[in-house]
Design a protein around this nucleic acid. Structure first.
Lengths: 196, 196
DNA sequence: TCCGATATTAGGACTAGGTACTAAAAAACA
DNA sequence: TGTTTTTTAGTACCTAGTCCTAATATCGGA
């Protein structure tokens, strides 16, 4: 089926986004146009060639790998941290984080950002969440930037209370009180401690 | 500096492993041999060409992506559901769900399973988590199978309380009380309702 | 020191998946 | 109808290879 140029280019963009591994040849067949047309389309849309796309995906992968090693496994980007005191992270809500039906962020992503920030702020070898009291105060839409602020409230014998408030702009969208277990050094402080 | 064949091939393997993006040309210079020699080496060591290597890395990345942001709307597999009453789901804890340091499942995955089950059990167009009171009662290790059981406790004017308990074997590992907002049909029931 | 084996290099033909460019044909529109 | 836009075709060139043949180099042993 032949489509208009505009329509075709829209679909082309989507198709390549979904599957960056597709060749011009295959796309030409898919859209029943010549390979040259596909190439003109890519030009107009500034979509790089197959190999560059693959390379990009691969490079992203490598970066992710190094990123997940040193900065620890945090959801969202930590932009400020004072160990055992406070921390701030940013999380951009993209299409994969929302419900398809209504475009609202799924709760567990906001929870993940907050929880992971609560873990990160603790200056110990190990930190585990014991309990949490959380509130989703406003729905968060796709393309929002969520800023989570964690504050250590108090700390006593292996237990630390961390308050996390998340905002979109000036709106509070999430609040949580996390009760964290901590284990100072390595081995024998066994995590069975986490029994609450 | 010229090395013996064996030595060179050993280094070659390492070099490519570290940086799969290196070309034969660059390797030839690095080892002061001809491009052909590098190619013979790759043959003998069964190392694929640059593009195949890059493609492999990229593909691995894509796989990871689908894994980390589940396509399906529910985290875990629902094995039983009675709308507005109860539901059960299974979630297998794999290496990507645990902290590298201690092999313990990160809290937000257990939360995600429970929260997502609470959403699923509600028989309405839309369900959003308003607040939640949760407890991680025991650490969950890699390769565990977590069974979450959701039960609708009560329901009144657009608000439904869902209790979720998650088990590994017979051990309770997580408990949460979720207060869910529900909107029967589509548009105008505006989600500002979620102000708590 | 010469011999044969192994290792290395050079070169040509071919490949995929393109870029960059020119030119012609087809379709859309005014 | 003429003009503009869009599409197609074709050429030369590119990278990073494969596959193959043939010519050298290098090395160990008799």
């Amino acid at each position: 089926m032949r489509r208009s140029k505009k329509e075709r280019q829209e679909l082309l963009k989507q198709t390549i986004e979904e599957n960056p591994f597709v060749t011009d040849e295959e796309l030409a067949q898919e859209f029943s146009v010549s390979v040259q047309t596909i190439r003109l389309d890519r030009m107009e849309l500034s979509i790089p060639e197959l190999r560059e796309r693959i390379k990009y995906v691969a490079e992203k992968n490598m970066q992710d790998e190094v990123r997940s090693l040193p900065i620890e496994e945090v959801i969202g980007d930590i932009i400020d941290i004072e160990l055992d005191k406070s921390a701030i992270s940013i999380f951009d809500v993209k299409k994969e984080h929302v419900f398809k039906r209504n475009g609202i962020a799924r709760g567990h992503h906001l929870f993940a950002q907050a929880n992971s920030l609560a873990v990160a702020v603790i200056n110990d070898e190990m930190a585990l969440t014991g309990k949490a009291d959380i509130r989703f105060t406003q729905p968060v839409k796709e393309n929002s930037r969520v800023i989570a602020k964690a504050k250590v409230v108090r700390s006593q014998k292996g237990r630390t209370i961390v308050d996390v408030s998340s905002f979109v702009g000036s709106d509070l969208v999430f609040r949580g009180e996390f009760s964290m277990f901590r284990a100072p050094s390595a081995e024998k402080e066994e995590i069975d401690e986490t029994r609450n």
